[in-house]
Design a protein around this nucleic acid. Structure first.
Ligand SMILES: [Mn+2]
Ligand SMILES: [Mn+2]
Ligand SMILES: [Mn+2]
Ligand SMILES: [Mn+2]
Lengths: 218, 218
DNA sequence: TTAATAAATTAGGTTCGTCTAATTTATTTT
DNA sequence: AAAATAAATTAGACGAACCTAATTTATTAA
């Protein structure tokens, strides 16, 4: 089986590959994993030896199919455990990430699948992120940033791109809730401030930074 | 926080201390942890440095109060997760131990307590072992081995001393179930074979080895 | 009480995952 | 195209947790 460290590298490479491009740089990995660059170089060599990644000296790293399978498996675990923590144990959506970072490394496909079943085969985690199925297939989300909306546009709030507890707390406090409708009433030309109508006609004003971290569907 | 390895050492020392005596030998630890003796010596020195154990060269090791707290915390986690796996996810009692060995190392007192609450504050795990409370207090069990019973004695089946899957399977197959009444109908003088009456008048014959692994109460 | 046996420790290595400092390679800027 | 800067790698170390082989200490038997 793979070590926690390897799994965290794989997950990080997967996410950087999704977000930015095909090949991942040593420095970006060092940054997200909070280690120094030589540690990354070292680890990538070992992982290349295990055929989890293809590593080209000074050019960057990519996941192999095997590495991708492992990464998606960890993400599946992470998101299912987050659902468990929120739906069954009563945690808030801003409290579960760090616990899920531990729970995602429990090694048992059978447990993952039984948990999935116990939770009613959820399609998304508490932050709206899609949950890969047992075959490692992750549905491509067609959600789009609120910051791309024009005045009058509307949609359903289905996800966030900033997962920080402070942002999630701000959303709670301001009245945002996953699954609710949101309509753009106006966009201030000067600073791209958004005036939104939330569920129950409540109007709120949010900065561009916020609009740029909210995902809407339909 | 403590490493998984340290936690496993602490748990092993705790159990050996409970079972055998005050002081635990290097060789017994090596055996239950499945490592070689010099590794144990090494580790005990490091743990003594952290005040988790008191270690006397060539004499053996004992838990400090701090070490005992950690050990009991791990045991609490282990048993609560076993209850979760059986009660909520539908696992059988012979399938949960290895998973609990992983889950017991999730570091969060808050999670443990929320889990405890979610499970309805169970008093014992699926094998009848008592669950320490949030303060690390583990109720002293007054259960006694069936092998100490005489003809005509009866009690309630409340635990096992052999936790192996093969033994637990044997019990399932033979008709033993935790919480059921058991009455001794006869004991063969020649080889200490027990004839038992189980719930629903069912009679079964078991070896001394079996009678010596069953715990009965009242 | 000495000799034989068993248990424990020391000595010296290995792998994993990390570090700092020095060097090399790649990318920008002039 | 050369110089300056930034990114990545190499070299050399370290702690944790393990190992084998050799040695020491403790226990048991003669
Ligand atoms: Mn998360
Ligand atoms: Mn999430
Ligand atoms: Mn167990
Ligand atoms: Mn148990």
């Amino acid at each position: 089986m793979h070590s926690f460290t390897e799994e965290n590298y794989l997950k990080a490479i997967y996410k950087l590959q999704e977000a930015n491009g095909l090949v991942v740089a040593t420095s970006s990995l060092a940054q997200v994993l909070e280690v120094h660059a030589p540690s990354v170089t070292d680890m990538l060599k070992r992982m290349a030896g295990k055929k989890l990644v293809t590593y080209q000296k000074s050019k960057g790293v990519k996941l192999t199919e095997k590495g991708r399978q492992v990464a998606v498996g960890i993400i599946r675990n992470h998101r299912l455990w987050e659902v468990f923590l929120v739906d069954k144990l009563g945690y808030k959506w801003d409290e579960v990430h760090d616990l899920a970072e531990q729970l995602e490394h429990i090694h048992s496909e059978d447990l993952t699948n039984k948990l999935d079943s116990f939770l009613g085969f959820p399609k998304a985690d508490p932050h709206g992120d899609p949950i890969p199925d047992a075959n490692g297939i992750l549905p491509k989300s067609k959600a789009v940033l609120l910051s791309t909306f024009a005045e009058g546009d509307q949609g359903t709030f289905t996800g966030v791109t900033d997962h920080s507890a402070t942002f999630l707390n701000y959303l709670d406090k301001t009245g945002f809730s996953l699954g609710d409708p949101i309509k753009v009433k106006g966009i201030e030309k000067y600073d791209q401030t958004y005036t939104l109508q939330l569920k129950g006609k409540k109007e709120v004003v949010v900065s561009f930074k916020v609009a740029n971290s909210l995902l809407l569907s339909q």
